[in-house]
Design a protein around this nucleic acid. Structure first.
Length: 425
RNA sequence: GUGGGCGUAGCGUAGCGGUUAACGCGCCAGGUUGUGGCCCUGGAGAUCGAGGGUUCAAAUCCCUCCGUCCACCCCA
């Protein structure tokens, strides 16, 4: 009976980010990290899995994330854990658990982490994707909302992403939302025969979502629906006004979108989304908002918070679409080749010395002919080939050939470093 | 969870019922005497997604499953 062998494949909805993709990721990561420094956000790394209750309580029992997208598993001790489906709840958990209430408020934190959601994969959507996010916890003022929006705005700006639209809305708080939802339901009640099936479900489950239905049939009804801005309580209205004042002060342009709502339960007041102009379902590239009730929901004292998350895969997708220059992949500066096996040891030593001197170097290996080694050097994109032949071996020299233009010089072995450095500062 | 497209060497594709499955890129090697890129030659590499069926004959037709991509839902 033949043993059954099997080629393993990456699980559905996951990907391998190979070296030739890394320039995109480095480009984004470097910009994000530097901006966070400038804005005074400190990096937090929290576990990739958490007690699943953190998310069911924090994100909301009836959200899609909790109902059908969480990777939940039991560990050997019987604990029910979940791979992180979003980034905000873990940060809030850490804020509470690590006593960050006693730090100067707000506490500014950022993260860069894989996110897991069991969902059908599609363009720009993965079961494991990565999010960069920032949270400011412990300050209710609109200036902090403006600040996180500005941070995200600046990121896209630094990345040279064009044609992004910032949509802004407010969805009130515990004071005014019930009244608005009542008004919205009253408005829809007589029209349920005219809306799509999904909207009939939303009417029961999550009336706010009625507003962002894309079905043509529902558009005329949405257009005449009551606007939240007419039902805001005074503090929420003030907050929204203040936020817009700050955004204008920072020269951030935005569009008020009364139909913008969010799929996570914890949002209050200001919510926002960055959308590329190009149409498409999975287009939201980054989004966020205020979550003043979340910490309390997680067992802390009432503590305000606001933040955003942005999807790295979607950023990379847009960088590619827009042909943004993100820099090049790693190439060796020097490829060390040898003519005969006698020179192998010397070649290895040279490659080793170059690396020790911080010069990216690769040594030839095996029994390849010098010609094959040269081809290899070219294929790797090396700047120089260092050739050690019979003559060099007896002279204690190395022939350095610059592959770009074919010029070459022979220099003493210990002068290779300086020669290469001088030409490539 | 729903709907549609596609699954042939590492990658991109052709072949769409009939001898040893083709091409491009990539990979490896050679084109004599110590050297790349262009060009030329040669080579390795494919149980044609899997299983079943129709047929004298199937990569090619049918069914099922799986995978993948796209869209919906929802989200970054």
């Amino acid at each position: 009976m033949a043993a059954e062998t099997r080629r393993y494949k990456a699980p559905r909805g996951t990907q391998d980010i190979l070296p030739d993709e890394q320039p995109y990721w480095d480009f984004v990561r470097t910009a994000a990290s530097r901006l966070c420094d400038e804005f005074g956000y400190g990096r937090i790394e929290s576990p990739i899995f958490e007690d699943s209750g953190l998310f069911t309580r924090g994100v909301g029992e009836v959200t899609d994330i909790v109902e059908k997208e969480m990777y939940v598993f039991e560990d050997r001790g019987g604990k029910t854990l979940a791979l992180r489906p979003e980034g905000t709840a873990p940060v809030c958990r850490a804020y509470l658990e690590r006593g960050m209430q006693s730090l100067p408020q707000p506490v500014r934190l950022w993260y860069w982490t894989p996110i897991f959601r069991y969902d059908r994969p599609q363009a720009g959507r993965y079961r494991q994707h990565h999010q960069f996010g920032a949270e400011a916890i412990g300050d209710a003022s609109a200036s902090v909302d403006a600040e996180v929006i500005e941070l995200l705005w600046r990121l896209y700006e630094e990345l040279n992403l064009k044609d992004l639209v910032l949509n802004l809305n407010t969805i009130g708080d515990q004071e005014c939302r019930p009244g608005y939802l009542e008004a919205l339901r009253d408005y829809y009640r007589g029209k349920l025969d005219d809306v799509c099936d999904d909207c009939r479900g939303r009417f029961e489950r999550n009336p706010l979502r009625l507003l962002d239905c894309k079905n043509d049939r529902c558009q005329p009804i949405i257009a005449k629906a009551p606007a939240f801005t007419d039902h805001l309580c005074e503090p929420c209205a003030q907050h929204f006004q203040d936020l817009q004042t700050y955004l204008r002060a920072a020269d951030i342009s935005y569009e008020l979108n009364p139909r913008l709502v969010r799929g996570l339960d914890y949002y209050t007041r200001a919510v926002f989304e960055f959308q590329p102009l190009e149409e498409g379902g999975q287009s939201t590239i980054g989004a966020g908002g205020r979550y003043d009730g979340l910490i309390e929901q997680l067992g802390g004292r009432p503590t305000p918070g606001t933040g955003f998350a942005t999807g790295i895969e979607r950023i990379v997708l847009n960088l590619k679409r827009q042909d943004v220059d993100v820099g090049e992949q790693w190439h060796p500066l020097v490829y060390v080749a040898y003519q005969t096996p006698k020179a192998r040891e010397q070649a290895y030593r040279l490659a080793s010395d170059l690396r020790r001197a911080s010069i990216p170097a690769i040594g030839a290996g095996g029994d390849r002919s010098l010609k094959a080694q040269m081809r290899h050097a070219d294929a790797l994109g090396a700047e120089y080939a260092a050739i050690i032949g019979e003559r060099e071996l007896s002279d204690g020299t190395v022939t350095l050939k610059r592959l770009r233009d074919g010029t070459q010089v022979t220099v003493p072995t210990d002068a290779v470093k300086d020669h290469v450095r001088a030409a490539n500062p």
